[in-house]
Design a protein around this nucleic acid. Structure first.
Lengths: 246, 246
DNA sequence: TAGTGGTCTAGACCACAAT
DNA sequence: TTGTGGTCTAGACCACTAC
């Protein structure tokens, strides 16, 4: 049974009040000050004690409800949920133990050039076939042990990869720095046997099981920003993710 | 360039007004009456023409923004996003073409009994090891071709599987009918080679690549409701899902 | 400058759960 | 019956975008 630490508000801050409250509530849950099952003070009372209107406080709580961290029940109250939440777009994680313990992943750029989009890539990126798109192929490794062979396509007007240092920055990081805000992604995960070239690059045997993932990501303007087709060594990688149903 | 069909409201309905609006907006997008890039009428005007207050209309739009179907931009307006959206908990899909064209999936229940939870299952379901839990094993097929071998564990106080017809109803459907509302799930997807028993049941060769998926689902009270450990034939199945970042 | 969404207030009435 | 969250209203002012 935890208790909610005092919440401080800064009305001169450009950060919205509801967001200030949501941040501090989230920290209280993440830090363990509030534990699963704990009940939050009633909306009207909490709003009153913070000097906020009820809609504003509700907005704050809604943020955490949307994240799956709080549950509201009419006639009962608002409670802390017991599941661990993982954010979308941080969903990839190495199963490799060494990676878990903080080993950095290395990146080798196999190719990076502008090519003409074929039918499939054009369709996925919502550009006419034949349009110029960046084609990027990377091999990712931990401790010189490769685990992922990744191919990405990006419209040329989304980002300029000339001179970009993809060994230091992830692709999504690079996009974010370029002002692209990812919002929605459609993704397909499956498995198949490794073919000759893939096996060689991934230091596997031919026929070894690989995890396959294709993904198309859209930014906050609804524009298709990236399409990827990736292969992972099944013994070194799993996809972990959290689903939240609203 | 599509246009928004007329929206009808029923103020005597128990369905909230904002939800009525959200439903009709969503249908307009799904049906294609509104296409990606289309702009919605401004909030204040749309609210006025529907006889609603602005906060209520905002709430309706927010539902679709949360689903990733609409994008709001200050100073610009509200636009339809260009991505196809898939709901969480509906993420599984057969890669088999015949299944796509409407072939029903058959289910064979291999076992269904109450057992004592081992350490892992107890941990995942948040019950003490040794607690009674339902253990369920199913083989799913299309046109007598098996594609999934699924094992599930459920706390006995969540649902009673005695006499339940799992050949007609999916497990999640059964839970929903039992008043359980799934809300959050943590999931891990990978791949490995088929072992002897798995290969036999799935009509595969030993060593064939399988998609693996483990998942723990929580209901709207934050209670662990189901833990599953599943295997899929990689040539007949992929996992498709949509990520929405908020 | 005009129009958009973002935030915030101060109430009101209702449905549901616990007692 | 009491207290909870769910919904809804009618405004207000602000920040940002496009022109």
């Amino acid at each position: 049974m935890g208790s909610l630490p005092r919440i401080g508000l800064d009305r001169s801050s450009p950060v919205p009040l509801y967001f200030q409250v949501a941040e501090q509530l989230e920290r209280a849950i993440v830090d363990g000050a509030l534990v699963p099952g704990d009940r939050i003070e009633a909306e009207i009372e909490l709003a009153g004690s913070l000097g906020l209107s009820r809609p504003t406080l509700r907005q704050a709580i809604q943020v955490l409800v949307d994240k799956g961290m709080l549950v509201r029940k009419r006639g009962v109250g608002t409670q802390v949920v017991g599941a661990k939440i993982r954010r979308p777009f941080e969903l990839t994680s190495l199963h490799d133990d060494l990676a878990r313990t903080g080993q950095p992943a290395g990146t080798e750029v196999l190719s990076c050039a502008v090519v003409e989009a074929d039918d499939e890539v054009g369709h996925e990126l919502q550009v006419p076939p034949g349009s110029p798109v960046w084609s990027l192929e990377r091999l990712r490794s931990v401790r010189d042990e490769p685990f992922a062979l990744m191919r990405n396509y990006l419209p040329v007007d989304v980002v300029d990869l000339r001179g970009a240092d993809l060994t230091a920055l992830g692709l999504y990081e690079l996009l974010r720095h370029g002002g692209v805000h990812l919002r929605v992604a459609n993704q397909r995960i499956g498995a198949r046997r490794a073919e000759a070239r893939e096996a060689r690059l991934l230091a596997e045997r031919r026929g070894a099981p690989l995890v396959t993932m294709t993904r198309t990501a859209f930014d906050d303007a609804g524009r298709a920003v990236e399409h990827g087709d990736h292969l992972y060594r099944a013994d070194r990688y799993t996809v972990e993710l959290t689903l939240v149903d609203r």
